[in-house]
Simulated scan of single mutants.
Amino acid sequence: MSSHLPAVTPDWAYEREHWRRGYFRVAGVDEAGRGAWAGPVTVAAVILPGLAMDYPFRDSKQLSAAQREEYAAEVRRVAVAWAVEHAWPDEIDQLNILGATHAAALRALARLAPPPQALVTDYLKLRVNLPLSAPPKADALSYSVAAASLLAKTERDAVMRELDLSRPGYGFAAHKGYGAPAHRAALQELGVSDVHRRSFAPIRRLLDGQPDGLWPVGGNADL
């Protein structure tokens, strides 16, 4: 494994709070793609062995694409259980982005076998009948959430590469559906595709015939 890791290092502090109360299967939960204009929001849930080991797992935003792929493979290798679920634009448009993220998270948690006894999320306050810690920036602070962030990010990136092949011209492989200038330019030229989130303000404005409304809004976060 690469030794070139970011300075911010997760630990087991949030997991230990649950371990002390007898909940040893603690699932970390994180998402990728909440702010994108196209494609799914992707949620991963991961239960790591409760051994308090040091792992190379970090918040996926702190790593290069190659590191993310390397460490995501390691997550899948060592995890007690893991699952990834997507909420696609039709579900996002129906439920809103937060509701769709919660729905995908609950689906991922339901697939974990063995099931979790407690959760740590990146400020995702899920309605579950389980002990829950939901601190902000948990993907940089908790090994379990960092592991989930790696799976969510790499799985979503793979989906966006597939969408780039099936819907050429939008540049999904490069900007992953976020509001990058190239994406905005493609929308001006090609219009809205079936994988764009019609409830998001920039896309809604374009559908309403206000293409200039694309430009003041958006960003490249989480690319």
Rank of each mutant, 00 (worst) to 15 (best):
S144H: 07
I47A: 05
E17M: 14
A81K: 03
K176F: 00
S3R: 13
M53A: 15
L206T: 03
R107N: 08
A174S: 15
D208S: 14
A83E: 08
G22W: 05
P202N: 08
R197L: 05
V145L: 03
V41I: 13
S64Y: 03
L190N: 00
P168F: 12
H86Y: 12
A44M: 12
K61N: 02
L124N: 04
V80T: 13
L207Y: 12
A44K: 03
Y23P: 02
W88C: 00
S166H: 15
A38E: 08
L112P: 01
E69M: 00
G35R: 02
A146S: 14
R20Y: 00
R204I: 10
L109P: 03
S144L: 06
V46I: 06
K137G: 00
V84M: 09
R25E: 07
L48H: 06
D11S: 07
R205K: 15
A173H: 12
D30I: 06
V128S: 07
A65P: 07
A152D: 06
M1K: 05
D157T: 15
D208R: 12
D93H: 09
R111N: 09
L48R: 02
L150D: 02
H86Q: 14
P40I: 08
I97C: 04
W19F: 13
E91L: 13
R198K: 14
K61E: 09
A45T: 04
F24L: 15
A147W: 06
P211S: 04
P211D: 02
S133D: 14
A13R: 15
P116R: 02
K153A: 08
D122V: 03
L124A: 05
D30A: 07
Y14P: 00
L106V: 05
A83P: 11
R205I: 03
Q62S: 13
E162L: 15
